[in-house]
């Protein structure tokens, strides 16, 4: 039970007790390459209906796709929770899985434990977590090896 945490970005909205205008939760199943990308697509469609800035939708879609594929590749299952707030959009993704023993190493560009089968499909560049970091304003990883990983990331609206 060795939980480790890593975070970046200036937290603007408290994680608990924030005003949530809209919430949605989507299940992701480990090894389900067949549906990989559908959670991100669903969230993109929702955000489009909200009329959010296309640049924000793009950034969140990139982060969501990477987070979703990581669950499919490295975890058993997860819930991807979308929260639309008055001045931010954020996602909380809690998975049950192997966890990340060294978060600092996992965040390095090029670091990957992808299997040959995953690499054959064009995964394993070690760019997923760096892509999430680059496309969000707040990003936090909490992981316990053998138990699972939680990602929380936020994009601020206007400024």
């Amino acid at each position: 039970m060795n939980e480790s945490r890593w975070s970046t970005g200036e937290p603007r909205v408290p994680w608990e007790g924030a005003e949530i205008l809209y919430g949605e939760s989507i299940r992701i199943v480990g090894d389900d390459f067949e549906h990989g990308g559908e959670a991100a697509a669903k969230i993109k469609a929702i955000l489009k209906q909200f009329g959010l800035d296309p640049a924000v939708i793009r950034r969140l879609s990139i982060a969501n796709f990477e987070a979703e594929m990581n669950v499919i590749m490295y975890a058993q299952e997860a819930e991807m929770q979308l929260q639309v707030l008055p001045d931010a959009v954020r996602v909380i993704l809690s998975d049950r899985g192997q966890g990340i023993p060294d978060i600092g190493q996992a965040l390095q560009e090029g670091y990957s434990t992808a299997t040959p089968r995953m690499r054959q499909r064009g995964f394993g560049a070690g760019l997923g977590l760096p892509n999430i970091r680059r496309n969000t304003d707040e990003f936090e990883i909490i992981s316990t090896p053998g138990v699972g990983t939680t990602l929380r990331y936020t994009i601020h609206l206007q400024g």
């Binding site: 990139i62 594929m69 064009g122 995964f123 560049a125 760019l127 892509n131």
Partner: peptide, 8 residues
């Protein structure tokens, strides 16, 4: 040919 490169 790398999916993470394409999407970003």
């Amino acid at each position: 040919d790398m999916v993470s490169d394409v999407i970003a």
